[in-house]
């Protein structure tokens, strides 16, 4: 099978040094310039197969949204390539990027911020259709929008309402409708359910899964709710400080997590009617992506770290199960 999307050895760093004056630092008796760089995404390699749901999990600030935005062409990577169906897309001008913009859509975390408050639902949905299909007649545009509204359960009588007149769940449906209306192949959904409560969550997840079945969609899905991730993903990538530390099928990852960070993460999932305690406690502070630790990025909090882990960055190895893990301990068979 050929991948629909390949992420090859991608780095995304943000320079937050500020102005020239902000960069001046006095150290060791000398005045020098110091740049401050946030290393949000580091050496990430992933492929996404057509029709699958690949999820990204990891703690707040580990680079999930940055990776999704880089894939979508909203950020240019500092290193590496993004390849969509065989074509390299990370260096394209916005005109050249346009055909990919219909095929690739993004649903943002915050449905309040991502809809234009001055546009009615109808305008919000019709605009991208017209933009990407200039030769459709007005009637065709209208039918297309009505179709999608029906599919996502947005009542067409709402068409002339503004975003603030809807609840969070309804707004999230409208954002999803806006992504679907241009017939994409690939959707990056960044925490599409984070702001919603359980009963609305189920509605939105069903909607996403139905759309996938009907249209053969491929999803890059970001969520911090691990039971949701387990339910809807084919494969899961675990990120820590901008690096992928484990990549496995959902079944393998949740059944047989190998990386110590994955193990700690999964042990912390609260269970319905479960007992408190018993999760793996991570010592040490969460390091910042400004000063990446040498060696393994997880070494400061890892209960199994040794000298090698503090010195040498682990390479990704493929295990017999097919899981990919970046950990010296797993490689040496001591974890």
């Amino acid at each position: 099978m050929t991948a629909i999307l390949e992420i090859q050895d991608v780095d995304k760093h943000f320079d937050i040094s500020g102005s020239f004056l902000d960069q001046i630092k006095f150290a060791d008796g000398k005045i020098g310039l110091q740049k401050t760089v946030v290393k949000a995404v580091n050496n990430v390699t992933l492929d996404i197969q057509p029709g699958e749901t690949l999820s990204i999990v990891g703690e707040s600030g580990c680079g999930k949204s940055t990776l999704a935005r880089t894939v979508m062409g909203l950020y240019r990577p500092n290193k590496g390539k993004i390849i969509y169906r065989g074509d390299r897309i990370d260096q394209l001008s916005s005109a050249k990027m346009r055909p990919y913009r219909t095929k690739m859509q993004m649903v943002f975390q915050d449905p309040y911020a991502s809809l234009n408050p001055r546009m009615t639902v109808k305008q919000t949905l019709e605009e991208p259709v017209r933009f990407h299909n200039p030769d459709l007649s007005r009637l065709e545009v209208r039918d297309k929008v009505a179709d999608v509204m029906l599919q996502v359960g947005v009542d067409p009588v709402w068409a002339s309402n503004y975003p603030h007149e809807f609840s969070g769940g309804q707004r999230q449906r409208i954002s999803i409708a806006r992504a679907l209306v241009v017939d994409p192949e690939f959707i990056a959904a960044d925490e599409p359910i984070a702001a919603l409560d359980v009963s609305i969550q189920a509605q939105i997840l069903n909607l996403l899964m139905d759309a996938q079945d009907q249209r053969g969609l491929t999803y890059l899905f970001i969520s911090h709710d691990l039971s949701v991730v387990e339910h809807i993903s084919n494969r899961v990538a675990v990120m820590y400080l901008g690096c992928v530390c484990e990549l496995a099928t959902s079944k393998e990852l949740f059944g047989n997590p190998r990386h110590p960070y994955t193990q700690a993460l999964l042990s912390a999932i609260p269970t319905l009617g479960g007992k408190k305690g018993g999760h793996i406690k991570l010592s040490g502070d969460v390091p910042t992506p400004i000063n990446l630790p040498t060696g393994c990025v997880f070494n400061g909090r890892c209960p199994h770290a040794n000298e090698r882990c503090r010195q040498e960055r682990p390479a990704q190895i493929t295990l017999e199960s097919g899981s990919i893990v970046a950990c010296h301990g797993v490689e040496e068979d001591r974890i």
Partner: peptide
């Protein structure tokens, strides 16, 4: 607003 590991703690 926190991660599962910190939530558990």
């Amino acid at each position: 607003a926190l991660d599962v590991t910190i939530q558990a703690e």
